[in-house]
Amino acid sequence: MKNRLLIVMTILTVLAPSLLSALTGEEIVRKADDMQIFETSEATGEMIIKDRFGTKVSTFNSWSRGSEESLIEFTSRAERGQKVLRTEDELYLFYPDAEELIRMQGSMLRQSMLGSDVSYEDMTGGKDRVSQYDVELLGEENVKGHDCYVLMMTANVRTVPYPKEKVWIDKETFLGWKAEYYTKSGRLLKEIEILKVEDFDGRLVATETRISDKMKTDTETIMILHDLKIDIPIDDNMFSLEELSW
C-alpha cells in the first residue's frame, strides 16, 4: 500500500489529503502525492478551539503510519489520557475511566471532536478520494505569495460528507495551502488554511492549520504541531486495539 503522511498529521490525518493532495491531471496528482509519502510520523501538538464561549487549548501527542493509521493521545488536563485511534476501517475512542473502547460509527461520527471544528468523520473519510471525486482544474491563483493551482473537486458518490471541495495547491511544492468545503449547491461549510509549514528535506509539512466550521457562529480551531518527526521507527503495535488501553 502506498504510504502518505498528511500535512496536518494526527487529527487531520485523513482530512488533509482530502483537501490538500487534491489531484487534477496525472502530473499534479503524482507530484502532490509524492510530496506526502511518509513512512511514519510523530509529533506533539495543540489544538486551540474558539467558540461562542471563548477559547480553550488541548494538547496532544500523535503518531501515524501511512495514510490510514493514526493515534492521538491527549495530554492537556481536561482530557488527559483520552485517545483516538484510527485503524484502516474503524475509529475508536479510549477514555481512561471507561472500561470499554467506544467504536464510533454511524451518526456518532458526525459529532465534533472535543467541541472543535473537526468532526470524527473528518478524520476517517477520503480513502479513495480520487475515485470519489471528479477533479477539475479551474486555474491559478496566488495564495499568500504562493502560486497555486485552483482545483474544484466534485464528489461522484454520496457517501462523502463534503460534496464539493475547492483546493489551492502550490505549483512548486505541491502543498495544499487552502481548501474550502461546499455543499452541492455551493454553500461554504468549512474552510481550512495552512498558516505555517516546516521543511523536511525539501518537503513542506504544515505545522499550523486553521479550520473553521462556517455553519457555526464565530468558531475556529487552530492545530499546531511541535517537534514533528517523520520516518522514524514506531512500535508495530502502536495502532492495535490491545495497545490502546495501556
Partner: peptide
C-alpha cells in the same frame, strides 16, 4: 457496568464506566 459519555465543562467529551 455501563459506560456513560457526556460533554464536559471543558467543552470536550469524556466517558466513564
Amino acid at each position: 457496568r455501563v459506560t456513560v459519555m457526556s460533554t464536559t465543562a471543558a467543552r470536550g467529551t469524556n466517558a466513564i464506566t
